[in-house]
Amino acid sequence: MRHGACREVKVLEVVPLGQSKRPGEFFELRLELPDWEAWRPGQFVMLRPLSWGLELVWGRPFSIASADRGVLCVLFQALGRGTRRLAGLRPGDQVLVWGPLGNGFAVDPGKRTLILAGGMGLAPFRAYVERHPAPDLIRLFFAHRFPLECYPFDYLSGLVDAVRVEERSPGDLALVIDALRAEMAAFDQRGLILACGPTPFLGTVRDRALELGLAERTQLSLEERMACGVGACLGCAVKDAGGGNVQVCSRGPVFWAGDVQLGRG
């Protein structure tokens, strides 16, 4: 697939999420939608505000949370230098967007689909659910650490069959993992499983998919630090099944569970 080009667009709005519980941390960034010919849920964009000048040299990669009616939305948690500055953008500020990038999730409208999302890993599934031809076949399992208001869960639970587990303290992690493993075991063996979340979360999904013989029906959307987003900098490499390097940006970010190894070192 041919990637879209690089465009300067305007910020429409920066909407804070979960303000009463986690002020200044979670945001929905709404931008003018570039003139894309096509895009798929699970693809991502690189964003770099023009105001970064020479100081921050990399764009930042974000899943497309929606791209509709002239608006491109991404969801993010302000954690580092780049995301904190994105949170401070104002309507009218210019942002460089290149994308849509990467491959996107599989869609099989004739089969049941289980979505497994951890934290901000919920973002690409907003687009996935909105674009899916048969949302009544989708079940969403959501694991989160921060208050529910920080994520688009309530919106999605109105569209699909949804459950959630909250990790209130580190001690809850085992409960989350058990629930996740049980969810996968109980799921339709002929369906499709799609996961996005922190790497340990994806590692649990991958291990369970291999145990259950579902690796060929399970896709993982990976997150990695990247400079270019287009396959040139080689900073976002992960190991494929044979131990070779593959770039998350250009060969992913979505991989079949049996095709990648997770975890560093």
Binding site: A5, C6, R48, V57, W58, G59, L96, W98, A227, C228, G229, V230, A232, C233
Partner: peptide
């Protein structure tokens, strides 16, 4: 490095 700052 400018190629990473913007691909064009």
């Amino acid at each position: 490095t400018a190629n990473f700052m913007r691909p064009d």
